Amino acid sequence: MSKRIDVDDLNVYYSKFLAVEGVSITIEPRSVTAFIGPSGCGKTTFLRTINRMHEVLPGAHVQGKMLLDGDDIYAAGVDPVTVRSQVGMVFQRPNPFPTMSIRDNVLAGVKLNGKRLGKRAEEEIVETSLRGANLWNEVKDRLDKPGSGLSGGQQQRLCIARTIAVQPDVILMDEPCSALDPISTLAVEDLINELKEKYTVVIVTHNMQQAARVSDKTAFFNIAGTGKPGKLIEYNDTKTIFNNPSVKATEDYVSGRFG
């Protein structure tokens, strides 16, 4: 598990509209990379290109290269569903399936991928995934209860358990703590630090303190104005981005002067 991501001059379009322009970036395996920048600068759009999730919108397409351990995920004949099993996504708001039990929520992605498992194998996946999401001890005695009955922070960790159950190589997180209270946020941040031991983790966040706490590298995106494409402005070690950025716009953003 855990793969390197190499992006070369990627342009992201929605029909004819250029949403993100000319991104080149290398994301190392077993690391946490944070995408920061003002609203509308393309960071979430770019995040969604890493598992071709943006393609759920009609007319969405890319130009350029996106390599996962050297394999172009946009090459002819590559199935987006296969890509999404390798590159999991955790969304901004916790989205457990409300009619499913905690157990069935964890197994949902595995079953969606067509895997047929015996009961013992299923139980092993459930326990391993919930332990991996630091949730097992809190829910082990109520696995048959609805996932929607958990607190917000627990629901988000349940969604992370559902993501890691399919054994991806990369985990994408789109503002995973924005709907959570500070205690739940801390639990998810602690989990992110543990996940990087096995996975490549990429997180979009508007919380500068969070980016500084959890990420090894930070990418700052910006936009020149309404209707203009988002661009990657600066990418470096997180400490450098926050303490000694090379671009003034980066310094202005991380210091709170704009955004």
Rank of each mutant, 00 (worst) to 15 (best):
S184A: 09
P38S: 00
M208H: 06
P96N: 07
G256F: 10
E21C: 01
P229G: 08
S246W: 01
S215K: 05
I50Q: 10
T205H: 07
R120G: 06
R84G: 00
P98F: 08
L232Y: 11
L150A: 02
P182K: 03
V247L: 00
F17G: 07
G64W: 05
L18Y: 04
D71T: 15
T33G: 10
K111V: 11
D6Q: 06
S178T: 01
D174L: 02
V62I: 04
D169F: 14
I183H: 04
T26C: 10
Y74G: 01
Q156T: 04
G147H: 09
N51H: 01
S151Q: 05
F17H: 12
I36K: 07
G152W: 02
K231V: 15
V170L: 01
I233A: 04
S215E: 02
T26W: 07
K239W: 13
M100W: 00
S85I: 05
A179Y: 01
T200P: 10
N51D: 08
G149T: 08
E234F: 12
Q155M: 12
A211D: 00
W136R: 01
A19D: 11
V247C: 04
R84Y: 08
G40K: 13
D6S: 11
R30L: 14
P176Q: 10
R48D: 08
S39H: 12
S2V: 09
T45I: 03
K119G: 15
E123Y: 03
S151T: 00
A224D: 14
D169A: 15
T226G: 15
L180M: 08
G149F: 12
